[in-house]
């Protein structure tokens, strides 16, 4: 955790216009194009707008989770409580939907609020109790799982999604684009503004680079960390409510497949796992990359074993292209 980037020597700097373009992000987008080309050899339909829009719709859930994960990773922390907070989002929103018209109207906010609540506890543990995030968020994941098991075990609670949740996940309300993609665009735009144009965003980068320096500069570091975890929890839960809408109901283990792909998407997008460096554009590229990779591997009907091996090998290969850290010593 002690390795930090050294400043780039002046002669290696690119002109101002090009310098803003992170080579990692460029490589990630290059890999997306390469993946699509490889896919198009197999079937023409890989380049059709319908296929791509469908992939974006599926990728939107991962994108929401990865957005929250990215903010936390920028701090140099990690949020391992994603799987069960996604499930909490799905289950709590469908639970609220069982309480008449008012419940149905408040279903989504209630689900998200439950995620924010768990995220706040994560933040208290990491920021105020100074427990390493890797273990504290793991504990919150277990607690969230425990609460959900208690709720569903022994009885069959209401778990059907409201029509609004279904609409949000699968409908095409505006311009024929899936609503899930609109949610992704809205959250993405808000995050870009949040990270680039607000005190909160600049503080996140500052804390990720060196928390003590940020503290000495007057940043309320603990409050920022708390907010970042709350944001991550809320976005995971939002993904959960939409996922419940997508499949019509909430179920245990619905968030299991989102933790590792989210971390992989964030890192493939060029965000340093040590914190302080990374752009939202990169995370978007990472999400698209992971979604396409998963989709192509399933379309070519690769057996699950080969799919796992190729999935891991491709991520490794791409990381080796641009994710390497600086050398210790010489």
């Amino acid at each position: 955790m002690t390795q930090k980037l050294e400043p780039v020597p002046a002669r290696l700097r690119l002109p101002a216009g090009l310098r803003r373009f992170d080579p990692a992000v460029a490589t990630a987008f290059g890999c997306i194009v390469a993946l699509l080309l490889v896919g198009s050899f197999y079937s023409r339909s890989f380049l059709s707008p319908e296929y791509l829009l469908q992939q974006f719709q599926v990728g939107a859930f991962l994108a929401l989770v990865a957005t929250g994960m990215m903010v936390v990773v920028l701090l140099g922390q990690i949020d391992l409580s994603v799987p069960w907070i996604v499930t909490v989002g799905g289950m709590m929103s469908t639970a609220a939907a069982g309480h008449g018209a008012a419940g149905a109207a408040l279903a989504i906010p209630f689900g998200v609020l439950c995620g924010v609540g768990l995220g706040v506890v994560n933040g208290i543990g990491v920021a105020y109790l100074r427990v390493p995030s890797m273990i504290f968020t793991l504990g919150i994941d277990a607690v969230a799982q425990g609460l959900m098991v208690l709720r569903t075990g022994g009885s069959a609670p209401q778990d059907m999604a409201t029509p609004l949740m279904g609409q949000l996940a699968t409908g095409h309300a505006i311009l024929g684009m899936p609503n899930a993609v609109w949610v992704w665009i809205a959250v993405g735009t808000a995050t870009v503004i949040l990270l680039g144009r607000t005190t909160f965003g600049r503080s996140v980068y500052a804390i990720g680079n060196r928390e003590s320096a940020a503290y000495l500069s007057g940043v309320h570091t603990r409050r920022i960390v708390l907010l970042a975890f709350a944001l991550s929890g809320g976005l995971s839960a939002l993904a959960g409510t939409m996922l419940a809408g997508y499949s019509g109901k909430a179920y245990q283990g619905m968030g299991d497949g989102y933790l590792l792909p989210a971390i992989a998407a964030v890192v493939l997008g060029g965000t340093s796992i040590l914190g302080g460096r990374g752009s939202y554009l990169g995370t978007t590229a990472g999400v698209i990359l992971i979604t396409l990779l998963q989709s192509i591997l399933s379309v070519v009907q690769m057996p699950d074993a080969g799919r796992q091996v190729i999935y891991g090998a491709v991520i490794l290969a791409m990381l080796l292209l641009y994710g390497r850290s600086s050398r210790v010593g010489g």
Binding site: Y311, G312, I315
Partner: peptide, 16 residues
């Protein structure tokens, strides 16, 4: 390879 252990082992874990 100088990759961060957490991401490198996520990927190798998928392979294994």
């Amino acid at each position: 390879g100088r990759l961060q252990p957490i991401v490198a082992t996520i990927a190798t874990g998928a392979i294994y």
